[in-house]
């Protein structure tokens, strides 16, 4: 049980709670496309890429400090929540996420092996890089461990601003291009014949996934992001009767999981990240029951 009063909890962790709500509403919508394209494994592998990027950033920190410089940031402050530290971590998380996505897309285009095997291999490589890179930097090891545990409660106003800005743009793009993105996923050939800019739309989706993952991993942590990319879309599929309903249900499940996660975290003193994922998973049994009942 938490020692804080509810209003104190909200006051103290306000940015973290809002960040969980923003991620809860937007990340599942991106996850919907991964699910529909049967690339749900990306939701697990890409956050690991981002974590590997952060760990790698720590490992190369001495070189970076010596040759590039860190502005006003010194090595001792790299684990702090300062703007410069966050930007440095975001840079590495983005580089690894977009690099991983590009590599997977390229290998997919060349048709090397099955998609599931490629993603599984990518996940295991990213996990190994995370551990090895963190091993090179004690500060990095502590930071990455905290990141993986999903300590969203440490989110500050600056992190929230970045998350809200990036996720706002992702949401806008999904709303504007929803139909075209669904058509390309549902019937790529028809999209090509009817002269949709298929490659541009696929690149747009990859960029939306990359932006969602790299920002989300740094700010809400990979555990929450895994959960929100994968679990609400799965639960929503059993509940929805239309594509429009699918998007609404997915965002609703994500948002409700964020709210319930905050409540669980407060009541049981759980880390917020895993609490959000557990709350999202609670939607799965009713979703399966509804799906079975409908036949």
């Amino acid at each position: 049980m938490n020692d804080l009063a509810w209003h104190e909890f909200v006051e103290l962790f306000g940015p973290a709670i809002v960040a969980a709500l923003v991620a809860g509403a937007v990340a599942p919508l991106v996850g919907n496309f991964l699910f529909l394209r049967r690339t749900g494994f990306y939701g697990v592998a890409l956050p690991q890429f981002a974590a590997a990027g952060v760990a790698f950033g720590f490992a190369v920190l001495p070189l970076w400090s010596a040759y590039v410089g860190l502005g006003h940031l010194d090595e001792a402050e790299i684990s702090s929540g300062s703007h410069a530290a966050l930007n440095y971590h975001l840079l590495w998380a983005s580089l690894f996420t977009f690099g991983g996505l590009a590599a997977l897309a390229l290998l997919g285009r060349k048709g090397r092996g099955s998609e599931a095997a490629r993603v599984a291999a990518a996940f295991s490589i990213a996990s190994a890089v995370t551990i090895l890179a963190a091993h090179e930097s004690p500060a990095g090891e502590v930071f990455v461990h905290s990141l993986l545990r999903g300590e969203i409660l440490l989110v500050g106003v600056h992190e929230l601003e970045i998350l809200a800005g990036v996720y706002g743009l992702v949401l806008l793009a999904l709303v504007v291009f929803q139909r075209e993105l669904v058509l390309v996923a549902f019937d790529r050939e028809a999209a090509l014949v009817t002269r949709r800019p298929v490659l541009l739309l696929e690149a747009l989706l990859l960029n939306l996934v990359g932006a969602t993952v790299s920002t989300g991993v740094m700010i809400v942590g990979p555990v929450v992001l895994f959960g929100l990319l994968v679990v609400p879309p799965l639960a929503a599929r059993g509940l929805a009767r239309s594509m429009k309903g699918y998007f609404w249900w997915s965002a609703t499940v994500g948002l409700a999981a964020a709210v319930a996660g905050v409540a669980l975290s407060y009541r049981l003193d759980w880390p917020l990240g895993p609490a959000v994922v557990v709350a999202a998973a609670a939607w799965l049994p009713p979703s399966w029951l509804v799906d079975r009942w409908r036949g």
């Binding site: 699910f35 529909l36 549902f186 019937d187 050939e189 929805a240 239309s242 594509m243």
Partner: peptide, 20 residues
Amino acid sequence: VYDAVFPLTVEEVVHLGAAP
């Protein structure tokens, strides 16, 4: 060629054909 994972209604499928 269609995948039943898409929860599209008839009307939604038709709308996908609208000129971009």
